[in-house]
Design a protein around this nucleic acid. Structure first.
Lengths: 161, 161
DNA sequence: GCGTCTGTAACTATAATCGTTACGGATGCG
DNA sequence: CGCATCCGTAACGATTATAGTTACAGACGC
């Protein structure tokens, strides 16, 4: 939903959108949108103005907002977490399993964050165009962890308002 | 919890463990453990036996069980999913956002699966030892068999034990 | 000053997960 | 064979997270 919101704001350019307008596209209640917008504003991704003729707009260019920033803005802690219930400390495995899994979690988080860091709101915007449905070829600039994956940007599509 | 269970079974070697024993280490109810064990059994990761002197043990060597298989066994669908509520089809963004985000999701999933595929239960077991706490040991031997997640996860046959 | 829009609290509804009780069926053993 | 034991699974309540809704105070432009 947060990405949906940002995509709408990106398409609107400098013109601020009201929460009600955004809610119409997401198909939900304006308050739900305002909650998200509030988080995004705290993360300095959007700028909101109260009062008449108010609304929200992006704080930066869509190409300068990564999905990792979006995720960090709307999700509480880390991307992943262990369940917090205590294990049996009288058992060797129970005593050490969390520490062992913390390392695994760290790896997964780093991997995901690497991917999200390489995708911007602008990339999502480009993907929106049905015209750019052709096979995506070019890779992105940032180099996430070692794994090879498909790029998602496709050149040429400019913003259309 | 599933990894915790498998780690216990790995340490037990060929001797089958009862759900009650496992539950003691995880600090939960035996039924919760049996639910997980049942999923792992359907995925052919463990072998369970009913009756007296029954219990569960690993179906393969710990080094041959990847965390991706574990994840696929206990998690319903894909690692990630979009929220399934319908967006406004009268809006250009609402109409296309899901398709655009599906690609992002695909990338994230592929990345996570790549990491999980490179970690085995044996690796977790090694990490358990406080002695090997120092360096993040080199990992990433990519040998596990081609897995068809379709066959592993979710609805299989009724009962086949 | 007035109308409008955001920020936020409070409450309800819904769904997922976990824990618990209960019971049928399978298994090994005396 | 009969029995004790253990798994597989259904059913139910408790807990939690999220989403939706209503309500209202404060900010802002005109």
């Amino acid at each position: 939903m947060a990405i949906h919101v940002l995509t709408l704001l990106a398409r609107a350019g400098d013109e601020p959108l009201k929460s009600e307008q955004v809610a119409a596209s997401v198909n939900t209640n304006p308050v739900v949108i305002r909650r998200i917008l509030c988080q995004l504003a705290r993360a300095r991704l959007v700028i909101s103005q109260t009062g008449a003729a108010g609304g929200s707009r992006l704080a930066r260019r869509p190409g300068q907002i990564t999905l990792l920033e979006v995720y960090s803005a709307v999700e509480a802690g880390d991307v992943f977490a262990l369940h917090r219930q205590p294990t049996n400390q009288d058992c060797f495995v129970g005593m050490n399993i969390k520490g062992a899994l913390a390392g695994v979690l760290e790896e997964v988080s780093a991997s995901v964050e690497g991917v999200l860091k390489g995708i911007t709101v602008e990339h999502v915007l480009e993907r929106l165009q049905p015209s750019s449905c052709a096979p995506p070829a070019p890779r992105r600039k940032v180099s996430p962890p070692k794994l090879s994956r498909r790029a998602l940007s496709s050149t040429g599509a400019k913003r259309r308002l």
